[in-house]
């Protein structure tokens, strides 16, 4: 029996612009399980990124509630949200969103040090270990503008991991990368998941989605269906791809 780590209960999100209300999320309910690599797929405008950010607390919701470990986190104060993000969540964005004037090492270490009672040395060691694990330790003293997109994204994953988060939110992590860098990033995320890391990822790339063990399909602000896959292992890509494509074709993807 898997533990539910994050739950959406009738989450609605409405944008108002020029007096016109647009409903992006329409009473979405879903559970995200600990240890899963959950993927949210859907066409552009389906509301998948909005759902991701609504679940993570980075964006507000119009109605419903979001629970983390059974505790309501939607509507928390800024201070409690900051603590939640700092201690339990990690983020990987489509654009790497590294602080432009910090080196890769500093980007990772600063996130590991802020608001916590950790020693400088322990944070430094952990940051260096993660950068080595992500294979970017040779570029650790460079600025984001001085490294490739793949290196920057791998540093961003290291940053997301520095606080040993319960859940990593990844929004199109390969969206701005070329094929080889995309494969490397997905390989790292899969490896993290194999080691027990819970991941919730948004993508419209089928190849990226293959790394997940649970795929949610969204359309027009609702979750239409979900597909459960066996845990990912190397050499099974073709078989998984056929299975996912078949499922998606049924959903008219």
């Amino acid at each position: 029996m898997k533990n539910v780590i994050l739950s959406a209960r009738n989450v609605c999100k409405t944008f108002s612009q020029g007096g016109v209300d647009t409903e992006i999320l329409k009473s979405v309910s879903a559970d995200i399980y600990e240890g899963d690599f959950t993927v949210i797929m859907g066409a552009s405008g389906a509301g998948k990124s909005t759902l991701l950010y609504s679940l993570s607390g980075m964006d507000s919701i119009s109605n419903g509630e979001v629970l983390f470990d059974g505790e309501k986190i939607s509507g928390l104060s800024e201070k409690k949200q900051a603590k939640l993000r700092s201690e339990h969540f990690g983020f990987v964005f489509q654009q790497t969103h590294l602080v432009s004037n910090l080196t890769l090492f500093e980007n990772v270490a600063v996130a590991g040090y802020v608001g916590k009672n950790r020693s400088v040395n322990s944070v430094r060691e952990k940051a260096l270990k993660l950068l080595r694990q992500m294979n970017v330790d040779n570029a650790k003293d460079r600025l984001p503008s001085q490294v490739s997109g793949g290196e920057a994204q791998r540093a961003a994953i290291a940053r997301a991991m520095i606080n040993s988060p319960r859940l990593i939110f990844a929004d199109e992590p390969t969206g701005a990368l070329n094929k080889s860098n995309s494969a490397e990033v997905m390989r790292l995320l899969s490896e993290l998941n194999r080691n027990g890391q819970s991941i919730l990822m948004v993508t419209h790339d089928v190849r990226a989605a293959l790394c997940g063990n649970r795929v949610l399909y969204m359309e027009d602000g609702k979750i239409l269906d979900e597909l459960n896959l066996p845990p990912y292992s190397d050499g099974e890509e073709k078989k998984r791809e056929q299975q996912v494509n078949k499922w998606l074709s049924v959903l008219r993807w």
Binding site: M58, K83, E87, H97, S100, R159
Partner: peptide, 16 residues
Amino acid sequence: QKDLGIYKAIGFRTDR
């Protein structure tokens, strides 16, 4: 704006 958003995303509070 973007850097400030990143700092907030990784756990920095506004007062800090």
